[in-house]
Design a protein around this nucleic acid. Structure first.
Lengths: 196, 196
DNA sequence: ACACATTCAATACAGTCGTATAGATATAAA
DNA sequence: TTTATATCTATACGACTGTATTGAATGTGT
């Protein structure tokens, strides 16, 4: 009963995610977004209520993908899965590694002062999701008796999250999807030292 | 023979450094910079040849300070100094810790796509300076016989640099100058495991 | 074939960006 | 006191920002 949309919503969000990932939020203008997503200004407004709405949608997609591909295996597994997770942060064979770093890290740094409550929440939820996943994996390791008993689980999980940020940051700063490989190596050694 | 300047150059750069540190480059407009630095538009142009020139000056000051307060002790010391360095990245008593993270990390993430050769170089020089400092400290540790012989020094130094980025990033994302404390703890454990 | 509903393309808008310019101002030397 | 020089304040500029509006285009249902 009306003119069909000239774009595929899902694909548009996907492309927007990639675009924001590479260029950041502020630096990417609406007119550039049109080209990279196949959307038009009107659609950005009506479908996502503006640029920031599209950004939030892209962030949610990113978080969803990360939860699916990286975090779920973590919660189900133990120490080995933690090691695999870190391996996935570098190198070309993984969907979690990128020369542009991590969209959530980039967002957190760029918008630390933006004070958009919606952004703040997406970020917080994302990192606490990762924290709990590490916590669960370590807890599993402990219950399996694979982990030393004197390890502070909360500090370990939080420290791992921070290491993840470092790897992503180094990936972006170096412009290479394996820029953070050295820290992945150190984390592997650390995990080994935690094993019984 | 002319009207005296209404600002102190050194202090202006110092304030600009703080301002860019907190707000980033793009998000901080020239008109806001005037207020926060005590400079005026004319001075920004004549004294620093524009906003980007002032930014570079601020980055150089930041790098200089970091070299002086944090990196020099590293190059002169050994494993203990590496540990002290990481301790200095979190908590209120250190000039290297901040809830705004690290100016160089923020710059590297925000401007990964800016392609300003000058910025690129300042960043590269900074991180390789830190890398060499870690390398030197570890080398000293090795020569003192305090370090296990099978440790890959290059990977260790590069991994430590990446961990530093992670701590700064977590500081900024969490908005706390001790946000990265957990990873500092893990790094301390890791350093301990390297000792003979 | 026609009316209806929705999207599209193009343009307009007010606001901000960094920079450039011009007249007023302040100091030191003549 | 006058002159020269440099800095200050204020305004102007074109380019850009994200958003809003308007008439044309493109479908479906009658």
């Amino acid at each position: 009963m009306s003119r069909p949309k000239s774009y595929d919503r899902q694909e548009a969000v996907e492309r927007a995610c990639q675009a924001f990932w590479a260029h950041g939020y502020t630096a990417l203008g609406v007119r550039a977004l049109e080209q990279m997503t196949g959307l038009n200004k009107f659609a950005i407004r009506t479908e996502f209520s503006g640029k920031e709405g599209l950004y939030l949608e892209a962030l949610r997609l990113y978080a969803e993908r990360a939860a699916q591909f990286a975090v779920e295996p973590l919660k189900a597994g133990g120490l080995d899965q933690v090691e695999e997770f870190f391996q996935g942060l570098v190198g070309g064979s993984s969907p979690m590694s990128s020369r542009f770093g991590c969209l959530m890290v980039n967002t957190g740094i760029e918008n630390a002062e933006l004070k958009s409550p919606a952004l703040e929440e997406v970020s917080t939820v994302y990192w606490s999701m990762l924290y709990r996943a590490f916590e669960a994996a370590l807890q599993t390791g402990r219950e399996d008796g694979a982990l030393k008993r004197d390890l502070d689980l909360a500090e370990a999980a939080q420290g791992l999250v921070t290491a993840v940020m470092g790897i992503h940051t180094m990936n972006r700063v170096s412009g290479r999807d394996d820029g953070g490989a050295a820290l992945v190596g150190l984390i592997r050694d650390l995990l080994a030292s935690w094993r019984t």
